[in-house]
Write a protein that binds this DNA or RNA. Structure first.
Lengths: 119, 119
DNA sequence: CCTTGACCTGGAGCGCGCTCCAGGGTTTTC
DNA sequence: GAAAACCCTGGAGCGCGCTCCAGGTCAAGG
């Protein structure tokens, strides 16, 4: 089985080593496997999960929500509930995109107004 | 001339009274006029500026940038430079909208994948 | 082996953007 | 003219999401 050192996991996931440890402490990552000496070895599954985590963080999901989602994932039977949460998150992402666009529209109106003031 | 008490300025601008004071301390607002007793009286101009501030904050401009922008505004001759900064900000807003949309796209792909796993 | 670089833990610290508080003074209302 | 509501200042505190540090242990190359 292919595994990854902390440095490699950081490289591939795009999170810093410190952040990976922080996520594990917070329960966003399940406990990562260790070598006999105690060094972490990330699996491809771990990296797959981190990819989703990155996507959710980039779209503004708070750490606390991610943690609840991760806890849900411990129980196989919650798959439907998890997908529902992702869809709910998708709606919030859509709202923030819409909000950003409408504020951008206002910004552009203000720029246009300044332009009429002789720029 | 129409003026506004702190509470009214907060109501109209959508910022809390504490935030208005904070912005003034930080130099994002020019010093607000006072009554003989020291209470602030906001003018319509102040509220107009606060409206732009709200727009810029909502689109993610950091406090430090807003402060630099406000300092520029003290000099009439910088109008063109300020408009250029707003346009630069507009480009960054566009970038973050685009980033959000592409991450949303990935999120939707992940949801679709989970759906194939039997939800 | 032994060096060198990567990794470990627990906990402190930080940057941002507010938010709240104590202990007062001011303004408005009746 | 007194009560009630509002506002003042300076500074401390907070929530979030990391980031850094000390003081050690582990692992891979020569």
């Amino acid at each position: 089985m292919i595994t990854y050192s902390p440095a490699q996991a950081a490289e591939v996931s795009g999170f810093s080593i410190d952040t990976l440890r922080y996520y594990e402490r917070e329960g966003i990552l399940r406990p990562i496997a260790r070598t006999s000496g105690g060094h972490r070895t990330y699996t491809q599954d771990d990296l797959g999960w981190l990819d989703l985590v990155h996507c959710l963080r980039d779209t503004g999901m708070p750490i606390a929500d991610l943690k609840r989602y991760a806890e849900l994932s411990l129980d196989e039977a919650t798959l439907a509930a998890r997908v529902a949460l992702l869809e709910e998150h998708d709606r919030r992402v859509q709202e923030s995109i819409d909000a950003l666009r409408s504020q951008q529209e206002r910004l552009r109106e203000k720029i246009a107004w300044y332009r009429t003031q002789g720029v």
